[in-house]
Simulated assay, not measured.
Amino acid sequence: MKPRSLLSDYLFKNWLLIGIFVCIFLASIYPSLGAKEGPLKPEYTVKYGAVSVIFFISGLSLKTDSVYYTLQQHWLHLFIQSLHSFSFLFSLITVACMPPPVSSAVILTKASQGNETAAIFNSVLGSFFGILITPLLLLFNLGFTTVVPVMGIVLQLSVSVLLPLCAGQLIRCYTEFRGHRLPLNTISQSALLFIIYTTFCDTFNMPESGLIATDILLTMFIVLVVQIVLLTLSFIMAKSIQYFSPADVVCAMFCSTHKSLTLGIPILRIMFHGLSHLTQISLPLLVYHPTQMILGGLLVTNLKEWMYSQNSKKLPL
């Protein structure tokens, strides 16, 4: 095989990972473009645009039978939600209290050919639980008192997640449109890249608040180690449960370890508004969120190969 062919194959298989690094590079050059209240208006284009596109496509792609089957996978849901809570023992306090994301775990599970339906179910379930549980955990661990606008966050989740998901399912059930002629996976992953880009724009556009380079580097190192430990533990534990298929293992690994920046940062800003050390409190989550997507991008190809090998073993000779 020619070197050019090898390079093109590698780029094709890992385009999502490459796209993540391109987004980081572009965000570092001109962060104010995609930062909150910047020209791209991510407070609207991400919350109600990119996230909605991801879940509309998911609703359009999911077979209705798989949704019914997923609702019966009680042990998988219990494992994911329990392990997500168990991460409090390993992670940083503010990050540990955060709910799961509503997009990255779903897209990475789908890209790895894991159980996408279960990923959606647990991401949405965990996000709604997090609206109530996250503020309580923060109050318990950090000792602050505040009021969180629960109904506002519920409305945001309903508009950007549930409505597009249900719309996609309704179109699938009552029309013949399946989107087969459209590159739905590419569109979903491109929407995720836009979310990643705006996330890093916010990170690079972070105002000065007394943090020095060693603080940021130390936080990045700790977060990286924590994530590697959590991903490894969740993979080993899920793989050891005989009731879980390889697709379930991939879903459990991502959904039980990911934390949400989209929901987490607004909650932190509401709860600790006006405090001089808000940036220090937010920094671990700002680092954790993009790092989990970079690690996930690195794992996608290996997970797909692992799933293929596991499924090949089950095929009759």
Rank of each mutant, 00 (worst) to 15 (best):
M1A: 14
R4T: 15
L7N: 10
S8T: 15
Y10D: 08
L11I: 15
K13E: 14
N14K: 06
W15P: 12
I20C: 02
V22I: 15
F25C: 13
L26A: 11
P31M: 02
A35N: 00
A35R: 02
G38C: 04
L40S: 06
Y44L: 07
A50Y: 04
V53Y: 04
V53A: 12
I54V: 12
S61L: 11
K63Q: 11
D65L: 08
S66C: 08
S66R: 12
Y68P: 00
Y68N: 10
T70W: 07
L71R: 09
H77I: 10
L78G: 12
I80D: 02
S82P: 03
S85C: 06
S87V: 13
L92E: 08
A96E: 02
M98S: 09
A105K: 05
A119S: 15
G130H: 01
I131P: 01
I131W: 01
I133W: 03
L139T: 12
F140A: 11
F140H: 11
F144R: 14
P149D: 00
M151C: 08
G152W: 08
V154R: 10
L155N: 13
Q156W: 10
L157W: 03
L163K: 06
L163V: 11
A167Y: 03
G168Y: 08
Q169V: 10
I171P: 01
T175K: 05
R178Q: 04
G179K: 04
H180W: 10
L182I: 14
L182Y: 06
P183Y: 08
I196Q: 00
T198E: 01
C201F: 06
M206D: 00
M206I: 06
P207D: 07
P207F: 00
G210D: 02
L211W: 02
A213K: 08
I222D: 13
M237R: 03
M237F: 13
S240Y: 09
I241P: 00
Y243P: 06
F244Q: 03
V250G: 06
A252T: 02
M253S: 11
M253I: 06
F254S: 01
S256M: 00
H258T: 13
H258L: 13
K259I: 07
L261C: 06
G264A: 05
I265L: 13
I265V: 12
I267E: 02
I267P: 02
L268D: 00
I270Q: 13
I270W: 02
F272T: 01
H273I: 11
H273D: 14
S276C: 03
L278A: 11
L283R: 05
M293C: 11
G297E: 03
L298K: 05
L298T: 07
L299E: 04
N302R: 15
N311R: 07
P316N: 07
L317C: 14
L317G: 15
